[in-house]
Amino acid sequence: MRDALPWVRQKTPRRLRWGVFLWLVGFALGQCPLAGAEVACPAPGSAAESAVVAYVDDGDTVKLSDGRRVRLAGIDAPEVAHSAYNDRPATPAEPFGEASRAALQAILARSHNRLRVQPGAEGTDRYGREMAYLYTPGGQSIQQLLLADGLAMAVYMPPNLALADCLTATEQTARAARRGIWANAEYEPGIETARGIPADVQGAAIVRGQVVSVHQTRSTVWVNLEGRVALQIPARAWPSFAGVDFQRWRGKTLRARGWLVPDKNRYQDWRMPIESARSVTLVNAE
């Protein structure tokens, strides 16, 4: 995600700042973010190892004391501010980016930065970070703690779907309560594709738009949304869409989440690869 769109920036800053304040106060008082949660994620398995965190990059990435960098599987947190590097310009923090990092730091501080690391089904991402599920020493999912307070969103990247059910349920509760990021219109209801995608969008995003066309080849289903945004569903993801007639999506409004990729051609300006049916919902069917 990125900073709020110009057309919502006037409506959200006070609520966003107030949400960060309330979260920090609640954590300082020792309130458990999952108090009263209906769905608890499974405890770590036998493959989980004990580790110590040396540094927290942001709300979804940590560096362990042995030098390994670990990306929290199954979630994506708002971006923190980044300084200019080589030919990449500096970028500001997104709403709740700093709060998400502070929340992860606070969770870890309670156990003196000790945690349990459960390897994901896919070992590393394209940046060389280990994909893993993190737990407190007592077995509580750290991904779930962040989602419970609206400080991250669930993402679905097979084969790392081990906690998809419990993380989805936790996010739905936070979304319904408009906690954290869910008070930001770019997450709820999502970026309206008809208005155009901001050029500086960062990380994972949620988009919402009407389907104008659907084209299927032997290897890919292309779902074109208004505003020249295309959802790219590869054949390997089709089994998760069992029973879905993609052609029936024409004229309907979809809400999709994933990583937006600039891809200017005659059909689209932006492309969003979709690897799981969990990443797409019909708006009128939510």
Rank of each mutant, 00 (worst) to 15 (best):
R116T: 02
P119E: 01
G120D: 02
E122P: 11
E122S: 15
G123M: 11
G123W: 05
G123R: 14
T124H: 15
T124D: 14
D125A: 03
D125W: 04
R126E: 01
R126H: 08
Y127S: 09
G128N: 09
R129Y: 05
R129S: 05
R129W: 04
R129L: 02
E130A: 10
E130I: 03
M131P: 06
A132L: 13
Y133M: 01
Y133W: 03
Y133H: 03
L134T: 07
Y135G: 02
Y135M: 02
Y135E: 00
T136D: 01
T136V: 00
T136K: 12
T136S: 06
P137K: 14
G139L: 05
Q140E: 07
S141Q: 11
S141H: 14
I142H: 15
I142K: 15
L146Y: 02
L146G: 05
L147E: 01
L147M: 00
L147D: 00
A148Q: 07
D149H: 09
G150D: 07
A152L: 12
M153G: 08
M153C: 03
M153S: 02
V155Q: 13
Y156L: 03
Y156A: 04
Y156D: 07
M157R: 15
M157L: 14
M157G: 15
P158Y: 08
P159M: 10
P159D: 05
P159Y: 07
P159H: 10
N160K: 00
L161V: 12
A162V: 08
A162E: 10
A162Q: 08
L163T: 08
L163Q: 12
D165S: 14
D165E: 11
D165I: 12
T168V: 05
T168M: 01
A169C: 07
T170M: 09
T170A: 09
E171N: 01
E171W: 07
Q172V: 01
Q172H: 08
T173K: 13
T173L: 14
A174T: 02
A174S: 10
A174C: 03
R175E: 12
R175T: 11
A177S: 14
A177Q: 14
